Simulated scan of single mutants.
Amino acid sequence: MRRNGRPRGATAASRIYADLRAELVSLVRRPGEPISEAQIATAYGVSRTPVREAILKLSDEGLVEIFPQSGIFVSRIPVAALPETIIIRKSLEETTARMAAEHATSSQVLSLRAILERQREACAAKDREAFHQADELFHAGIAEVAGYPGIWKLILQVKVHVDRFRRLTLPQIGRMTEVIGEHEPILTAIERRDTDGARAAMASHLERLLDDISEIQTLNPECFDQPS
């Protein structure tokens, strides 16, 4: 499919990178799937040079693998790296939840509650993409309320494979409803200025990801890089 518009130069590489990255993280392009530079270049109406630039950047992030003489493939999710990344995220977000409970204003709580309502609407519509985006806004919003939005930016840098893994959890029956049920006590504790409660609720929420790894790997073995 040809993309609208014809990007040029550095703009082309940036746009192709952003589009491909979104497709990889959302699992539109599935782990193990081949990637054709020629097809992408044709779709964007550009030469292979900006495509290769984007591919190399994605390779640096571990999202694609380049095999000389064989081709380019979507990387599988490195299961061994997930626990450490989740623990890093959990540690950082326990802090943002606690500090949000210290500093949240009434209007900020209302904004977070509006995001949670968006999640409920997405859940009712079975719109997993909208649900995921609202989930991101909820966690980013907590960091903003805490007064440390840079913490969320740091988390974004390390959680790319966790996001791919999380996409596999959402189709599970009842999982989106469960996530909302995990978000609610976080927000309630923030609203009540219960710092310990907010920290504990966030910890419990993110620990669920650790608990899910084995089951999701069993259900989707083709998506994971099996340790040798």
Score class of each variant (00 low, 15 high):
58 L>Y: 00
154 L>E: 03
107 S>H: 07
166 R>C: 10
58 L>V: 07
176 M>H: 04
81 A>R: 06
151 I>D: 01
123 C>Y: 14
66 I>C: 10
173 I>M: 06
55 I>V: 11
70 S>V: 15
176 M>D: 03
86 I>M: 03
134 A>H: 01
55 I>C: 02
146 A>T: 09
156 L>I: 02
98 R>Q: 05
80 A>M: 14
78 P>E: 05
78 P>R: 05
82 L>G: 05
138 F>H: 13
155 I>G: 01
73 F>V: 12
136 E>Y: 08
71 G>C: 13
154 L>F: 08
114 A>S: 15
125 A>Q: 15
120 R>C: 05
56 L>W: 05
164 R>F: 09
82 L>W: 02
137 L>Q: 15
161 H>Y: 04
149 P>K: 02
89 R>Y: 02
62 G>K: 00
71 G>F: 08
63 L>P: 03
162 V>F: 15
158 V>W: 00
158 V>T: 07
80 A>D: 11
74 V>I: 09
141 G>V: 15
180 I>E: 03
126 K>N: 15
122 A>D: 09
64 V>R: 04
90 K>Q: 05
164 R>T: 11
152 W>N: 06
156 L>T: 10
162 V>T: 14
173 I>Y: 04
166 R>Q: 14
93 E>G: 02
144 E>Y: 10
84 E>S: 03
63 L>F: 06
79 V>N: 03
96 T>L: 00
110 L>D: 11
56 L>D: 06
146 A>C: 14
174 G>M: 05
112 L>S: 00
76 R>H: 08
76 R>I: 06
145 V>K: 02
90 K>I: 02
78 P>Q: 03
67 F>C: 11
137 L>M: 14
164 R>G: 10
104 A>P: 10
177 T>E: 14
161 H>A: 04
65 E>L: 12
114 A>M: 09
143 A>I: 09
120 R>Y: 08
135 D>N: 13
92 L>H: 02
164 R>H: 11
145 V>G: 08
132 H>N: 06
150 G>M: 00
63 L>K: 03
141 G>C: 14
121 E>K: 15
104 A>C: 08
94 E>G: 09
114 A>H: 11
88 I>P: 00
98 R>D: 04
58 L>H: 03
106 S>P: 09
168 L>M: 11
177 T>V: 10
137 L>C: 10
100 A>F: 00
111 S>I: 03
107 S>Q: 11
159 K>T: 15
169 T>E: 04
134 A>E: 01
170 L>C: 03
79 V>Y: 01
155 I>S: 03
113 R>V: 08
135 D>V: 07
61 E>W: 08
72 I>G: 12
122 A>I: 10
137 L>I: 07
180 I>Q: 05
96 T>E: 04
76 R>L: 06
68 P>Y: 15
167 R>P: 07
167 R>V: 09
127 D>Q: 13
154 L>N: 01
168 L>E: 07
101 A>C: 05
157 Q>D: 13
127 D>E: 13
99 M>L: 14
113 R>W: 10
108 Q>S: 07
167 R>W: 15
147 G>F: 07
61 E>R: 08
117 E>T: 09
60 D>K: 13
70 S>T: 14
70 S>M: 14
138 F>E: 09
122 A>L: 11
101 A>E: 00
124 A>T: 13
135 D>C: 02
134 A>S: 12
